[in-house]
Write a protein that binds this DNA or RNA. Structure first.
Length: 490
RNA sequence: GGGUCGUUAGCUCAGCUGGUAGAGCAGCGGACUUUUAAUCCGUUGGUCGGCGGUUCGAAUCCGCCACGACCUACCA
């Protein structure tokens, strides 16, 4: 730990005095009011009207600003709802109390009882009759005007960010509203919310490298889940016909402005519906989230306008590639391989046209998908859990939603044919054998579940963090995760 | 993993082609009974991210390392 500096040392001395007086860290002060509520209910009243009614109030909060002017002091308190000014004076509060108060520090948590009045400049202010120091802050706050600018400190000491940067608080309020809105839609439509294992003996449901851990009593390796998908579909087998989960996934991969090792996904499944239902529902959910979160459907993101109100466009994956000027048969492995080589994209001989087509899409087309766009017509090769298209078994009934070139959602008609699923797991296992660290494991228990019969169904996943980034104009996923993963402090 | 940029007081930042560290805020002392980033006077506070090197002399130039930001790669 760092050495205490002089500022902290001075505050420790003040705390020592408080302890000696027997009043350090009390928990018997009860506030009755919140700053925002007082402002809402009395902020519009005139100075004279407030003087007549003498409204009593009590508030508590962190002292953010202090303006001592001799026999009176103005200070600004911040509570969970907002800020309000307080007024402490020799006349009303008492000279001794006022003198002590002047030595309290910015950052201290203070409780105030008194009556409301308006200053000559018209600011609603709580005139203190009693004032108490509820919690001594030993460390100084960041600069009162510029706030906290250092990105690293904002991420590592998020509490400071939340104290001094109102925008940071707003981001997480938006996040909460987004999740609430999504949950509300799903519950209203009879989906059951569940929680499935974070610790899985076989990590499945996505192509990703997992975190590995060990259970001592069972003496077995476990993996942090990369997706809840296979468990949620087991529930569909079990008769939970509409089911969803909002929870963390963990992927042992790179960290970037779009990737955090743990991130939050909504996954939901519906029996007796298909991918088109899921696609429409995804669009509805994004819109509901946008409306609830920011109250409008045209959002500014990093200088661009993104319209969530107009119907999202739909584009076949090969069409998206052709749109970028690529000609020829996009199921011709040789042609795809040549194009990829030309673009400098490494690829292996074990990959078929489906995998190469997807790689080409990511290389040339993905970055152009700024407006909300559903990409459809995904090859079966790269969709091992999705149902094949009846009219073209090399494709699947699958979609991905892109907004601002980021994958926001992924859904499909579910593969409920246990024999096809077993075959696809075997193919995945073969690739894992060949060195593909992201290939899936063969999950025999999941096949056994499918063998009991899963109703025809559709499912989808929606990345909450990226959606919140979009709705809060956040350039980095770290801005929408309270405690993003960072290297240990040096 | 590669590239670019950054790291100076608790916070926000200056510091030129190398001459031995500054401001504002916060703190401390003083003045001030309606302030609003209060104001005014005085004042404390630094291993200039770390380790080496070049030099008479390094916050400044060079190398390595740490951490961060951005870009890129990886990530369906």
């Amino acid at each position: 730990m760092e050495e205490d500096n002089r500022l902290i040392e001075e505050r420790r001395e003040k705390l020592k005095a408080l302890r000696a007086a027997g009043s350090a860290y009390p928990n018997d002060f009860r506030r009755r009011d919140l700053a925002s509520q007082l402002n809402a209910s009395h902020g519009e009243k005139t100075k004279a009207a407030l003087e007549q009614t003498a409204v009593a109030a009590s508030i508590a909060g962190r002292m953010m600003l202090k303006r001592p002017m001799g026999k009176v002091t103005f200070a600004t308190l911040q509570d969970g709802s907002g800020r309000i000014q307080i007024y402490v004076s020799n006349d009303l509060t008492g000279e001794r109390e006022h003198e002590e108060f002047k030595h309290w520090d910015l950052g201290d948590i203070v409780g105030v009882e008194g009556t409301l009045f308006k200053t000559n400049k018209g600011e609603l202010t709580l005139q203190a009759k009693k004032i108490r120091l509820l919690s001594k802050a030993l460390r100084p706050l960041p600069e009162k005007f510029h706030g906290l600018a250092d990105q690293e400190t904002r991420y590592r000491q998020r509490y400071l960010d939340l104290i001094v940067n109102p925008q940071a608080r707003e981001v997480f309020a938006v996040r909460s509203r987004v999740i609430h809105a999504l949950r509300e839609v799903l519950l209203k439509e009879s989906y059951l919310e569940v929680e499935t294992p974070m610790l899985q003996p076989i990590p499945g449901g996505a192509a990703a490298r997992p975190f590995k851990t060990h259970h001592n009593a069972l003496d077995m390796d476990l993996y942090l889940r990369i997706a809840p998908e296979l468990y949620l579909k087991r529930l569909v087998v079990g008769g939970v016909e509409r089911v969803f989960e909002i929870n963390r996934n963990f992927r042992n991969e790179g960290i970037s402005t779009r990737h955090n090792p743990e991130f939050t996904m909504l996954e939901w499944y519906c029996a007796y519906e298909d991918w088109k239902y899921m696609l429409d529902m995804t669009e509805r959910l994004v819109r509901a989230a946008g409306q609830a979160a920011v109250g409008k459907l045209v959002v500014g993101y990093q200088g661009r306008q993104i319209d969530l109100a107009k119907p999202f466009s739909r584009l076949g994956l090969p069409d998206a590639i052709r749109k970028q000027g690529v000609q020829g048969d996009l199921r011709d492995r040789g042609l795809l391989s040549k194009k990829l080589t030309g673009l400098g994209v490494e690829h292996g001989s074990g990959q078929g046209w489906g995998a190469l087509q997807l790689m080409l899409f990511e290389a040339v087309a993905e970055k152009h998908l700024v407006d909300p766009t559903f990409i459809v017509d995904f090859p079966a090769e790269v969709s091992p859990l999705a149902r094949r298209r009846d009219s073209d078994p090399q494709l699947t009934d699958r979609f991905e939603l892109f907004i601002d070139a980021k994958e926001i959602a992924n859904g499909f008609s579910e593969l409920n044919d246990p024999e096809d699923q077993a075959a696809r797991f075997l193919e995945q296992a073969r690739r894992k054998e060949a060195g593909d660290q992201e290939a899936m494991y063969y999950d025999a228990d999941y096949i056994r579940a499918l063998e009991h019969g899963m109703p025809p169904a559709a499912g989808a996943g929606l990345g909450i963090d990226r959606l919140v980034m979009l709705l809060t104009d956040a350039p980095s996923i770290r801005d929408v995760i309270l405690f993003p993963q960072l290297r240990p402090e040096g």
